[in-house]
């Protein structure tokens, strides 16, 4: 009949009304007195020095990178988990090989210091 995702669309649209309605109501109710001092960025009470940028730290990027690899691994494990009841025993062996290779990847990342938050 209809798509099972239709309710998801309905829920998203209705849920969008919450921020929209709330923001609209707040815009009606609140005062609006802009002031040059209020508009400065917050830095514990002192003036900001320099532009807004952050020193490049590789560790942030490496965590996201390792996450991509494990995310794709999880995507492959989900269909296996659903079909597990109907698979013979060697399916377990095959998935053990899959997971073992990825554990090796994690161990490599660990030894090479990629997981250190410096």
């Amino acid at each position: 009949m209809q798509n099972e995702f239709l309710f998801v669309g309905v829920l998203l649209l209705v849920a969008l009304l919450l921020p929209a309605g709330g923001l609209g109501l707040a815009w009606l109710l609140r005062p609006h007195k802009p002031n040059a001092l209020k508009k400065t960025a917050y830095e514990c009470g002192i003036e900001t020095i320099g532009e807004t940028w952050v020193q490049f730290k590789v560790s942030y990027y490496i965590y996201a990178l390792i996450f991509v690899v494990f995310d794709v691994e999880a995507v492959f494990l989900f269909p296996w988990a659903v079909a597990y009841n109907q698979l013979p025993l060697y399916a377990l062996l095959e998935v053990s090989i899959f997971i073992a290779i990825l554990v090796f990847a994690l161990a490599y990342a660990w030894r090479k210091g990629a997981l250190k938050w410096i």
């Binding site: 296996w80 659903v82 698979l87 399916a91 998935v95 290779i101």
Partner: peptide
């Protein structure tokens, strides 16, 4: 279920190769 059966049935070699690719 069919995807899972295919992954570990007829397409098991690409399945393992994917893990090596990720590594």
């Amino acid at each position: 279920v069919q995807l899972g059966l295919a992954f570990l049935g007829s397409y098991v070699i690409p399945f393992e190769v994917v893990s090596i690719l990720l590594l």
